[in-house]
Design a protein around this nucleic acid. Structure first.
Lengths: 160, 160
DNA sequence: CAAAACGTTTAGTTTATATTAAACGTATAA
DNA sequence: TTATACGTTTAATATAAACTAAACGTTTTG
């Protein structure tokens, strides 16, 4: 089924995503879905990738939670099907935003707790926080602009 | 030596950075350096954090390679001292840029290899690539602007 | 009803990574 | 020279994460 060029791409995506803290199988699922014209069922994913159903079940959920993939169902078919989210990029940006905000929070708490003990440290943390804030604002506006370009396309019809 | 408020902050930073694929000790080293007025030697780091010299040696190097921390030496002292890089934010942005560019590359190769087999896939990959490209350009210009704000401050004198 | 088709959970194994203690190499000091 | 102070490497252990097979609960089909 899967052509060699595709499987190499799938493999690469697996590596790339695994660098971002995802299991390699999750990365490969994502890669495979990227190059699949049709949505794929759990069994199709498992078979094509040569891994267990359990892994696919776990990792699809993880991908779903991270906003990379979505689960769809077809009337008259009780299997679940998976596809990459059409608003993928937006989701990735949101994810990053959340992460940076958390760091910013940690930093803010730290600044409050440690304030006044050392001028050097105070300045360092303030500087860091300011930079983070800057980045966050920038990313947030980039996200808005991006969304404006892509008016949430009405969830297109299923696979096949 | 280390106050409780500080050590809690250190711990949190450890967790946050470990979510980004760094060993927890590396995260704590970074956190500790953030809240230390003076540069710290390898032994000071090891003792304060209660971990082995080996870990600190390995993880400081890792932090150095990732551009989070820099190593400095003092005349008449053969120990190495560590501090967070003053241009920390820039480095993080660069790191992220490199990462996105790599993904973009992978994607481009994939598109070339798979082109023409499926219109749906072609479009999906094109869309993804376009979004990535957009993000990359945006981040790159944000980086430039940020750098303009902070003219590389002449590496300030050491600790103590 | 029994049998089959799904997806999930569990419990165990495998694999990878973090962490350490100890040995090592090198430079400095006595 | 011997002794001491560093940082690094190595080899082994501990810890955590990925991955799987098998059991399970449901829903559907015959």
């Amino acid at each position: 089924m899967t052509k060699p060029a595709a499987s190499e791409f799938v493999e690469r995506m697996g590596v790339v995503l695994s660098e971002d803290g995802l299991p390699r199988i999750a990365g490969r699922i994502f890669g495979l879905l990227l190059v699949s014209p049709d949505d794929l069922s759990l069994d199709e994913l498992a078979e094509t990738l040569g891994v267990s159903k359990a892994s696919v079940s776990l990792d699809t959920r993880r991908l779903e939670q991270r906003g990379l993939v979505e689960r769809v169902s077809r009337p008259g078919d009780r299997r679940d099907y998976y596809r990459v989210r059409p608003d993928l990029l937006s989701n990735l940006m949101e994810q990053r935003l959340r992460r940076w905000r958390r760091i910013h929070e940690t930093l803010t708490e730290g600044r409050r707790a440690l304030h006044g003990q050392s001028t050097v440290v105070d300045e360092r943390l303030a500087d860091f926080a300011e930079g983070l804030d800057h980045s966050i604002l920038n990313l947030a506006s980039a996200l808005q602009r991006w969304r404006a370009t892509r008016p949430t396309r009405a969830a297109a019809a299923g696979g096949r």
